[in-house]
């Protein structure tokens, strides 16, 4: 990653704004259904499992596993200097929930599927963008 923060496109939809703003305290929050208690991501207007509308952001541990990733070798977006990693991270609370994010804090060629990662936040004004860095080597037990 480049040293300067990339010019991230943030134009949150109504249900999703908290995803980029609630991390000032270092805690990752995801939308959760108040009735069936499932996590929902991307944040939506209604729970896809029980159709409840009692949805609100709740804290999660902020740890997860890389489900897949791509190393971008081309400048797809001006300012996003290659190479950078876009990954889908499965969160520990519910592996069906995957967050699209960047993997930072390591060489791009060291990123692997199955790698354990932890959230950090890139502060930029009011935004706190959830990014993930590798956890110290302690691979998930089978």
């Amino acid at each position: 990653m480049s040293a300067d923060p990339p010019p991230r496109f943030i134009s949150p939809h109504a249900e999703g704004e908290f995803y980029w703003t609630s991390g000032a305290d270092g805690v990752l929050r995801l939308q959760r259904c108040g009735d069936c208690r499932r996590y929902i991501h991307p944040p939506g207007p209604v729970c896809p499992y029980c159709h409840s509308r009692a949805l609100s952001p709740e804290p999660v541990a902020g740890t997860g596993t890389i489900a897949t990733f791509t190393i971008n070798r081309k400048e797809w977006i001006p300012g996003f200097e290659p190479p950078y990693v876009f990954a889908l991270v499965e969160i520990d609370e519910d592996p069906t929930i995957r967050l699209g994010t960047n993997i930072v804090g390591c060489e791009v060629d060291d990123v692997e599927i199955g790698m354990r990662v932890e959230v950090e936040f890139e502060a930029n004004g009011e935004w706190h963008v959830p990014l993930f860095h590798p956890l110290p080597v302690e691979r998930s037990e089978e």
């Binding site: 990339p6 991230r8 496109f9 943030i10 134009s11 949150p12 939809h13 249900e15 999703g16 995803y19 980029w20 991501h41 991307p42 944040p43 939506g44 791509t70 971008n72 797809w76 977006i77 996003f80 950078y84 876009f86 967050l99 699209g100 994010t101 960047n102 963008v129 990014l131």
Partner: peptide
């Protein structure tokens, strides 16, 4: 456009090949 795109663009995913 759309609600999912917000969650990709912020991390640099915009093009179909990605």
């Amino acid at each position: 456009p759309g609600d999912a795109a917000d969650l990709r663009h912020d991390a640099g995913l915009i093009a179909y090949p990605q």
